[in-house]
Amino acid sequence: MFFRIMDRSRMPDLVRGLAAEYEVIGPIAKDGKFVFGKVEDPSDLRLDYDTTLLPPKKLFFPPEEQMMRFRVADNEVVDDEVYAAPRVVFGLHSCDINGLLLMDNVFMRDYEDPYYRARRESTLLVGVSCTSSETCFCNAWGTDEVHWGFDIFLTDLGDRYFVSVQSVKGAELLDRHVESREITSEDTEEFQSVTAAFKDSFSETLDTSQLPLLLDAKFNSPMWDELGDRCLSCGACSMVCPTCYCFDVVDRLAPDQKSGARERRWDSCQFGEFAAVAHGQNFRESRASRVKYRYYHKQWGYLSKFERVLCVGCGRCQRACLAGISPREVVKALETGGVQ
């Protein structure tokens, strides 16, 4: 990796330059909040955003997507091509880049998912440093830092950006569209102090010791019943999660019933029929068992395969949950016993 310094005032140049070659997507304002949307003008880009309503997973794994078109008569696939336009996602926080890396493990390893891969490979990622908010707990998992998976990462040093360049494309884009200079030891020192201040800004440090083990040891804890009683089974947590990848598959016939499309949609393990088989058996009938499974899979199931927890501490699920269930609270309950 190499580093450059870019003057803050150059930011519009960079965005305009990228927009000349790519579709640029970044955090933009919506109804008092932020979403990842098309950046029409550099002034749309709100790099001061706290978080977005949906994570960037929607750009790679859309809420609803056509997998293939088919013909009924001979059960044949007519079209399963994936068309992905070149684009740049600008302004990702480290939690969200880490979220994509966790999704990559699922979709780009064994049995590669062609839909996800096509979008992922056609997209450049530009990260940007952030400030912690009340619902953030990325510091618990080390996802407050990101070491790979981006093309360029911009750390805000006030009047300038400390630019980490990771890919050839990132280097070319920077070179082509914006004036930058080499880093000095003062820049690096300031980068370190900004990073340290960020780490100190979190309101608490979550104790996550022995978490997978505790999930098994406290599998029958009454805490799950308490959480189950509160859970609305609405699935909001799964939708807004940057790492929830579960989906349902449905066939939709065209009105003439002769052709149709096989589609997939985001699903949630909190829905009652998520684990029900065709002849009636439901392996997770109670709300408590479903709430528990969400955490069991994130902190242990995924970890058992990829050695990382399936959470980046973005806090979106806590914000989205009307019942106020938060992963921080669940982790604390596991560590100390008892739900607050």
């Binding site: 699922v106 979709f107 049995y111 998912d113 990848y245 579960c246 989906f247 349902d248 598959v249 997939r264 699903d267 393990c269 998520f274 684990a275 392996f283 499974y293 069991y296 899979h297 242990w300 199931g301 970890l303 058992s304």
Partner: peptide, 9 residues
Amino acid sequence: KCGHCGVGH
């Protein structure tokens, strides 16, 4: 990928 068949971890 789809997550439906989870059994334990």
